[in-house]
């Protein structure tokens, strides 16, 4: 599925990235990503700490189901993408992207009054892993009347 350029730009900007997976018993699990490489053909590579979020990784390995919400801290503009993912080996690009993301999002949060010591536990790059997500659908998640509305994709 092709992604809109504006949406791709948004997802690549310093926004919070949260990940939802579920295991085979349908117990959901939450994780955080530290960076996204967004390709317009609908592939998003999400980088996360395997040390911090082992459950997210094992769920993706088990069934591939992955949803990710991108939320801009300054105005709560949010989009959720859903699709199927595989675990891929992290590359230098992923590592560099994670370092740049952590630096830029920390700065954004600090500007909003959140000290770096407080955001540090969410922005961890220890033992990096990467998930390659093929997006099937995109939803508006910004609080308001349009929340939950499908933007792209779907059956």
């Amino acid at each position: 599925m092709w992604l809109d350029q504006d949406l791709a730009n948004f997802m690549s900007s310093p926004v919070m990235i949260i990940l939802g997976t579920s295991n085979d018993a349908l117990q959901p699990e939450i994780g955080r990503a530290v960076g996204a490489l967004v390709r317009l053909d609908g592939e998003i590579e999400l980088v996360l700490s395997a040390w911090q979020w082992p459950g997210t990784l094992s769920n993706v390995r088990a069934n591939g189901r992955l949803s990710a919400t991108f939320a801009r801290p300054s105005d709560y503009v949010s989009y959720q993408v859903k699709g199927h993912a595989v675990v891929v080996p992290p590359t230098e690009e992923h590592r560099a992207g994670a370092a740049a993301y952590i630096e830029s999002i920390s700065a954004v949060l600090a500007e909003l009054g959140l000290e770096r010591e407080v955001s540090a536990p969410w922005l961890v790059n220890r033992d990096l892993a990467a998930l390659s997500l093929s997006v099937d659908s995109v939803f508006v998640q910004t609080p308001g009347a349009k929340a939950g509305q499908m933007l792209q994709g779907g059956q």
Partner: peptide, 21 residues
């Protein structure tokens, strides 16, 4: 102070992830 997060799963297992006020 810090937004919480909720994840749910549809009956087919599709997760949904969202911030909570």
């Amino acid at each position: 102070v810090i937004p919480s997060i909720i994840a749910t799963a549809a009956s087919d297992g599709t997760p949904n992830i969202s911030y909570l006020s």
